[in-house]
Design a protein around this nucleic acid. Structure first.
Length: 828
DNA sequence: ATCTCCCGCCATATG
DNA sequence: CATATGGCGGGAGAT
């Protein structure tokens, strides 16, 4: 019926009724809220209940829940009634069930009250949507809104239909870190500036023709279409929830958060946020309705984030007037402990370069739909992918040195500025750069075949995939193991690794970023994806890898490792399938392009997407390596199809070889997790290292730490010596081992750090969380960072921000100049 | 009037 | 097919 109107608030009169049989009661038209003329009327039983609930402390609530799990609902209802009756007589005026009482924010508070901020890892709390909806008396739809946002922060993760796991804030630090990094990679700062600039221009000429440059530049930036940043322990469980394209609210939420994390004043206006979020997929179309919708969604998200105390509402006043905005009040994302130190020492040092986090630790998985066919729906994305690839290629070729915009960069490319980086307290940082990407190979055999043939076509398709096109082989070679399975989950416990779901378009990027090592050797395309700037990254990564391998190799525990893979494989098998499908899709794309080989190769890679911490690798690596080398050789052969892009890559062929080969080998190893880790983290492991660390002997975290340490130490070395990473690394590795023993200390430290980090989160209302907590002594690694990469682009490549005392911020970017404007922020 | 944003229809996804 | 999810936008409160 055309006439649907929102049900008037009156409906609220009896929620119970509402929920149960609301359909008939209400006519379609929105019942105008009965003016609360009648004081008594206004509140409904529900409202009372709500009030009570909200009033009640969480503990009480939880207690109640426990007591009456099953029948609680009934009881509650009864209770409500009682209350109602009693209350009826009373004055309820104040508690009108006003709209506010139904706000998402309030609902979210209630929701959050049900669970502890930092649940003990030991016992996981599960969330049953049915229960929640019932207990909170809300429509399911609302709960989804909340859960989706929480999910974007990895505070919960979905297990299955109706079922979520509560992680609380344990993952928050990592998540924020990751988001910040991705935000930086996406160049949101620049985008924001662009938008502001545009507005500014508008003032002058209202006509509104936009300058092309602005538009174009902005357009290019779009690409990160939809990617969902994931953490290791929190991946989408069961194939069930995976690959949905739909993560839009989740993705929006993450992006929104990213904006805060990258913005200097950490204040983001809804308008800007909406524009950026829209702009990403569609070049600006001033579609007003779309904008409105986006704003609505942002409010929804903002409400949840506000309940989490991550942001608060403020108003910014510009020439135009005051606009709604939000200010980040959550924990400051620790850029780096070390950095902190450095800064303290001399802030002045390196001004311009924006410091970014080291590399991306996350991996990515494809977002696309796993299901092959239907997925095609996403064509658009695929197309984009192609487009973006081409663009990248073009860019690279044309001007390698110039700061290219990384498109998708998102994930990968951090800017050149790694200088500062820090080591994250949490596993995350550690992870950086240390992961290896696995590729999903269909079967080892397949791979081998491919390798042998080196010609793509030759490959027969092993499976009967639905898709006609035979899968492309991954360029990578595989391994000797038959089960190469792909996917391994990163070790959840350690929390080290994390994966990102990528949009297809980003795939190439990912590869890139991902520790490049992974990828191989061959893949031109991948390489291509990398921005010229990134090239260094690549090297770096590679280097690290090499180190890792070596290091890892020594340690013992091969057995465990091997076992692991298989076990996991099952789990991951699903994923694999998906990936394979994805691959197929990719293939299609390739064809599209015509440039099958180069693309194909690259594409192939990304499916794998998972990064694994080298740490886990055991010596097994070595052996594997040798075997693998063969494979590597294959890849090497690729020259055949060297793509143009390849040329672009900074690395020399020799370098590539070195690096790559080892990497591959590593991969398999990685897969195998140490037994400990596995045991510890059954499934979703949460990344609370702390707790686990302390108690369990085996605990994975320790291994993680070791791993981390190694890397840290190693990295620098690697960086410096790109040419022959392996050799250098070796020595390091030995050290690493030793380090591991001492892990105890480390682990402790880690725990401390994390703890600290976490605390601020909830209770702390204080605006500035970010104090450098304690300058803990960092792990050794300071040296590393600094010169990591120099920017090829030159001084301008980065963007720098400076804030004036008055709050005005100015940003200087290479070319882009944005007028300064004054902003006043009003807090409500 | 503008800012917020609740509500719930209905397309999709999932099982 | 029945449900579970969640995009989306109308239009009702709050200011």
């Amino acid at each position: 019926r055309n006439v649907l109107k929102t049900p008037l608030k009156q409906a609220a009169t009896s929620q119970v009724v509402l929920t149960e049989r609301q359909p008939d009661c209400q006519p379609l038209t929105t019942p105008p809220k009965p003016k609360d003329t009648s004081p008594a009327e206004p509140w409904t039983p529900t409202s009372n209940l709500k009030m009570l609930i909200s009033a009640a402390s969480p503990e009480i609530r939880s207690r109640e829940q426990r007591k009456q799990l099953s029948n609680s609902s009934t009881e509650v209802l009864q209770a409500k009634h009682c209350l109602q009756e009693h209350l009826l007589g009373d004055e309820y005026e104040k508690s009108q069930p006003s709209r506010k009482e139904k706000s998402l924010g309030l609902l979210c508070h209630k929701f959050l009250a049900r669970y502890p901020d930092y649940p003990s890892p030991a016992q996981k709390s599960y969330i049953c949507l049915d229960e929640v909806t019932e207990e909170l008396h809300v429509e399911r739809r609302r709960i989804y809104d909340i859960v989706n946002v929480l999910e974007s922060l990895h505070m919960v993760s979905r297990l299955a239909r109706n079922r979520y796991v509560w992680h609380g804030r344990h993952n928050l630090p990592q998540t924020l870190q990751a988001l910040k990094k991705v935000g930086e990679e996406n160049k949101y700062i620049q985008q924001i500036q662009m938008i502001k600039k545009r507005e500014y221009e508008h003032e002058f000429d209202p006509d509104g023709e936009r300058s092309e440059e602005t538009a174009s530049s902005l357009g290019s930036s779009e690409q990160s279409e939809m990617s969902f940043v994931e953490l290791p322990g929190v991946e989408f469980r069961a194939a069930s929830v995976n690959g949905r394209k739909y993560k839009s609210l989740r993705v929006m939420s993450q992006k929104f958060v990213m904006l805060f994390l990258v913005s200097t004043p950490q204040i983001v206006s809804l308008e800007v946020a909406a524009k950026i979020l829209i702009g990403e997929d569609q070049l600006e179309d001033l579609d007003k309705s779309k904008f409105k919708t986006k704003i609505r969604r942002l409010y929804d998200i903002a409400n949840v984030l506000s309940s989490l105390k991550l942001i608060k509402k403020v108003h910014v006043t510009e020439e135009r007037g005051r606009k709604p905005a939000f200010k980040w009040t959550g924990p400051e994302v620790l850029p780096n402990i070390q950095d902190t130190k450095l800064e303290a020492t001399s802030t002045t040092c390196s001004p311009p370069v924006s410091e970014s986090v080291p590399s991306k630790e996350h991996c990515s998985k494809n977002l696309f739909p796993s299901k092959g066919k239907q997925n095609f729906t996403r064509h658009s994305s695929l197309i984009k992918l192609v487009k973006s690839i081409e663009n990248d290629r073009r860019k690279i070729q044309s001007a390698p040195t110039s700061p290219v915009k990384m498109s998708t960069s998102s994930l990968c490319a951090t800017e050149n500025n790694l200088s500062g980086h820090s080591f994250l307290p949490e596993g995350i940082k550690i992870c950086l750069g240390f992961f290896v990407c696995l590729f999903c190979l269909r079967t080892a055999e397949e791979m081998q075949m491919k390798c042998a043939l080196s010609s793509p076509e030759a490959v027969p398709k092993p499976e009967p995939p639905q898709q006609p096109p035979p899968s492309q082989p991954l360029g990578v070679c595989p391994a000797s193991h038959s089960s190469v399975s792909p996917v391994i989950l990163p070790h959840p416990h350690s929390g080290v690794s994390y994966a990102i779901y990528l949009h297809p378009s980003q795939a190439h990027t990912v590869t890139t970023y991902s520790p490049g090592f992974m990828l191989q050797p061959l893949p031109c395309a991948n390489v291509t994806g990398i921005k010229s700037n990134n090239s260094k990254v690549l090297n770096k990564i590679t280097t690290e890898e090499g180190d890792n391998q070596i290091a890892t190799a020594e340690p013992t525990k091969p057995l465990a490792a091997e076992e692991r893979p298989e076990m996991k494989s099952e789990t991951s098998s699903q994923r694999c399938l998906k990936r394979s499908q994805a691959l197929q899709e990719n293939n299609l794309i390739k064809r599209h392009r015509g440039d099958e080989e180069s693309l194909g190769t690259s594409l192939t890679f990304f499916p794998s997407g998972y990064l694994i911490p080298l740490t886990h690798c055991t010596h097994g690596t070595k052996a594997d390596c040798s075997n693998k080398e063969k494979a590597g050789m294959c890849s090497l052969q690729h020259p055949t199809y060297s793509s143009p892009i390849t040329g672009v890559i900074p690395m020399t062929a020799s370098e590539l070889k070195t690096v790559n080969i080892p990497a591959f080998h590593i991969t398999p190893l990685n897969i195998m997790l140490s037994p400990n880790s596995i045991a510890a983290a059954p499934v979703l492991g949460n990344s609370c290292l702390n707790s686990s660390t302390a108690s369990s002997v085996q605990n994975p975290s320790s291994s993680a730490l070791n791993f981390m340490l190694q890397h840290i130490g190693l990295i620098p070395a690697g960086v410096q010596v790109p040419a022959n990473p392996v050799l250098q690394h070796v020595p390091v590795s030995s050290q690493a081992e030793s380090t591991s023993h001492s892990s105890g200390n480390t682990s402790v430290q880690e725990g401390k750090v994390s703890t600290k980090t976490l605390r601020p989160g909830r209770g702390g209302s204080s605006g500035k969380v970010g104090e450098p907590s304690a300058p803990k002594e960092p792990q050794e690694p300071q040296a590393v960072t600094e010169s990591f990469f120099r920017t090829p682009g030159g001084p301008n490549s980065g963007s720098s921000l400076s804030t004036n005392s008055d709050g005005t911020e100015r940003i200087s970017q290479g070319t882009l100049y944005i007028p300064q404007r004054k902003l006043e922020v009003l807090e409500d």
